[in-house]
Amino acid sequence: MPLLLVAAGGALGGVLRVALSNAVARRFPPPFPWGTLVVNLSGAFVAGAWLGHHGLPQGEADLAWLLVVGGLLGGYTTVSSFSLQTLALWQQGKGVKALCNGVATLYGGLLAAALGAALFGGLTP
């Protein structure tokens, strides 16, 4: 059951990621990878909101966490595309864009997760 939930969430998340990042990239064409940035920031926000609302997972048997965070959000957000695109920017001599993408992704992600948590119940250590 846990495996099925992670697989189903992961499949749906992956399709959403590709659909959304393609749509964004059509609107705001490369080289700057807006699509991946939008996907990752929105995913971090929802993950933070889930954490604020539900708290940390209740052991291995937390099926909702597995479906939403382990599957859906895990499949939706991506580090691999971020790495590939940032590396490509860097190797094309667009160092400033690469740096901006890195800073926006990392700090934006942390901020989005904190904001999501704060808006949906807050963080309880």
Partner: peptide
Amino acid sequence: TTFSLFSL
């Protein structure tokens, strides 16, 4: 890979 979990 996962960015959401990294942020969390």
